[in-house]
Design a protein around this nucleic acid. Structure first.
Lengths: 142, 142
DNA sequence: ATTAAAACTGATAATCATTTTCAAATTGCC
DNA sequence: GGCAATTTGAAAATGATTATCAGTTTTAAT
């Protein structure tokens, strides 16, 4: 029925390297270009096109998440630890330090129920990102 | 203290035209390019740079809202009727038809309170957009 | 291990939205 | 009217991302 994912993924050195990078930096939020620079500085050759393609694949598979930026600074990518499946909770992203909090609690269901019942709207958790300030940054901001 | 808005805004034909366009199409969600094409087709001459600049100003003033798109399709802009001040409520945006629902109810406060108390996170309503399907599109989708 | 097909890489070119530049035009104010 | 501040617009520049395509690597099957 759905043959979008009919092709298998071949494991490659570049793919593994990028994946390893994210696993080593679980909280870092990087652009494709930053990855390119880091790899080049580390003496690991990789093409930009490849980076974009790998990132796309990883986003597709739900391993990482893509965040759009308001200015023209290029999208950032960040590891999403998929233990519980990320369609099941919201992501709270700090606009200051980039931290992503996984909001995985019963209240979320209540939230969705309210929006469905009172506003006739079916929330897409995977696509939605709640922006604001995390505890630390909020303390600093005041 | 804050001299960012020290310069006065001159009212111009182009500025008025774009503003009028949004008022006439409160529910339409357009890209800068679409505005350009519409104006050209209507015989109203305008430069693209000007459109971008006007849109930026209107976003700044809170009159319209800028929505980023995941693909490379360019940002879309939509009128935000500022009756109650848009920092006071959430925006629910349908990923199918583009409709924006203003969620302005007591539950929102509860939501913010919960997130603050249980997740230590200070939600920024103005920046946050909840994505999903509106009633009509959700019905069709099933 | 060979092999063939499928998938991936990377250098480069292309695309395309957005920004910058700067001279000319417009606006608001005296 | 006259002047300074601001805006406009055509064209060039920028910059992130995607497409191209020949060559390489991976996988699965023999």
């Amino acid at each position: 029925m759905d043959n979008r994912d009919s092709k298998k993924n071949y494991r490659t050195r570049q793919q593994d390297s990028i994946e390893k990078y994210f696993r080593l930096h679980p909280d870092s939020c990087v652009t494709a270009d930053e990855i390119y620079i880091r790899f080049m500085n580390a003496g690991e050759k990789i093409g930009k096109a490849t980076i974009y393609r790998c990132l796309d694949r990883m986003v597709e598979s739900g391993e990482i998440k893509k965040f759009l930026s308001d200015g023209g600074e290029g999208a950032t990518y960040q590891l999403i630890d998929g233990e519980g499946g990320c369609d099941r909770h919201f992501h709270l992203k700090c606009t200051r330090c980039g931290t992503v909090i996984h909001m995985d609690c019963e209240f979320m269901d209540e939230f969705e129920r309210h929006i469905m019942q009172h506003h006739g709207f079916m929330v897409d958790n995977g696509r939605t990102i709640i922006y604001g300030l995390c505890e630390k940054c909020n303390a600093k901001a005041t």
